[in-house]
Simulated assay, not measured.
Amino acid sequence: MRLALVSSASGASVVAIDNKIEQAMDLVKSHLMYAVREEVEVLKEQIKELVERNSLLERENALLKSLSNNDQLSQLSAQQANPSSTLQAQAVMAQPAQPAQPPQQPNVSSA
């Protein structure tokens, strides 16, 4: 009879431990799911911002292409084909356009 009591007490103890383990696993699972959902929301926001930034850059690129002349576009194509000329192309494109005529000096009369 005493053996039966020890056995049932031992069985109850195992069941209690199993229940505790299951509860702990459920808690870990819920925390992980919460963390994953949070990270997904952050990533969705980053994707949204990157899509907006990409769209803005594409519009800016189209505008710059429409405002540039064929020489500048050919320099850009050459730059993409030969990356070592990047600095030279940037320097050329950064120079302001030269006016067709030099500015006229104002007529100043000495009194």
Rank of each mutant, 00 (worst) to 15 (best):
E38Y: 15
A91G: 07
P99Q: 01
S66C: 00
K48V: 09
N107C: 15
M1S: 04
E45A: 10
E52T: 03
A89F: 08
L64Q: 03
I47F: 12
Q75V: 10
L57N: 00
L67C: 07
K29V: 13
M33Y: 15
Q23Y: 10
Q46G: 01
L32C: 01
L67V: 07
A24Q: 08
Y34H: 07
S30G: 05
P96E: 01
V6T: 08
K20W: 12
T86S: 04
N107I: 15
V15F: 09
K48F: 06
N69A: 02
R59F: 05
Q104Y: 14
R53L: 12
M1E: 09
Q88P: 13
Q95H: 03
P99K: 02
P106K: 02
L3G: 06
V36E: 09
Y34I: 11
Q79F: 11
S85V: 12
M25S: 07
M25R: 12
P83N: 00
D18V: 14
E49D: 05
E60V: 08
L43Y: 06
L5N: 03
V14L: 06
L57F: 04
V14R: 09
M1Q: 06
V108M: 02
L64F: 01
N107L: 15
L67A: 00
L27D: 08
N61Y: 10
S55N: 05
M93T: 06
S68D: 00
Q46T: 11
D26H: 07
I17G: 03
A4D: 04
K48G: 02
K20Q: 06
S77I: 11
K20F: 10
Q105C: 03
L5Q: 04
E38N: 08
A16L: 12
S77Y: 07
M25T: 11
P106N: 04
S30Y: 03
P96W: 01
H31Y: 13
S13G: 08
N61H: 14
A89S: 01
E41F: 13
N82L: 14
S110K: 11
I21K: 02
K48D: 05
I47M: 08
S7T: 09
Y34A: 07
V28Q: 08
K29P: 03
S109A: 06
L32F: 13
D26F: 05
S13Y: 15
M25K: 14
L3C: 08
I21W: 02
M93V: 01
N54K: 12
N107P: 10
S66V: 00
Q23R: 14
Q79C: 12
L76I: 00
R37T: 14
A4W: 02
A4S: 04
L87T: 13
N107S: 14
Q79E: 09
S30V: 06
M1A: 08
S55L: 10
M33D: 08
A35T: 09
S84F: 11
V92L: 05
A111Q: 14
S8M: 06
P83I: 01
L57I: 01
K29M: 10
Q105N: 13
V28P: 11
V42L: 00
K44D: 05
D18T: 13
S109P: 11
E60F: 07
S55P: 01
I17H: 05
L76N: 00
A97T: 08
Q79L: 11
A16K: 02
R53E: 04
